[in-house]
């Protein structure tokens, strides 16, 4: 599923190119197989997981009595 035109800017920013080397393209490819709604539901599930992880982390850091 693709949207819109290319950015058509051939200037390569060396910082961006450096970051690009570490991009996990397998994650992008997996997301591109999903519908837009599926991508959002996956992101929302991840956000819920992140919330739960933060809660668990706070609880773990609480001084034990």
């Amino acid at each position: 599923m693709s949207f819109g035109e290319d950015s058509q800017d051939s200037e390569k920013d060396p910082v961006v190119e450096a970051y690009k080397k570490d991009i996990d393209r397998s994650l992008i490819r997996e997301n591109l197989k999903l519908t837009v709604e599926e991508r959002f539901r996956k992101a929302m599930a991840l956000a819920r997981f992140a919330d739960e992880l933060r809660r668990a982390g706070r609880e773990a850091r609480r001084p034990k009595k």
Binding site: I28, N31, R39, A43, L46, A47, A50
Partner: peptide
């Protein structure tokens, strides 16, 4: 995200 990003946004 709509375009396939794997980055979390809140």
């Amino acid at each position: 995200i709509a375009h396939g990003s794997a980055r979390l946004t809140e």
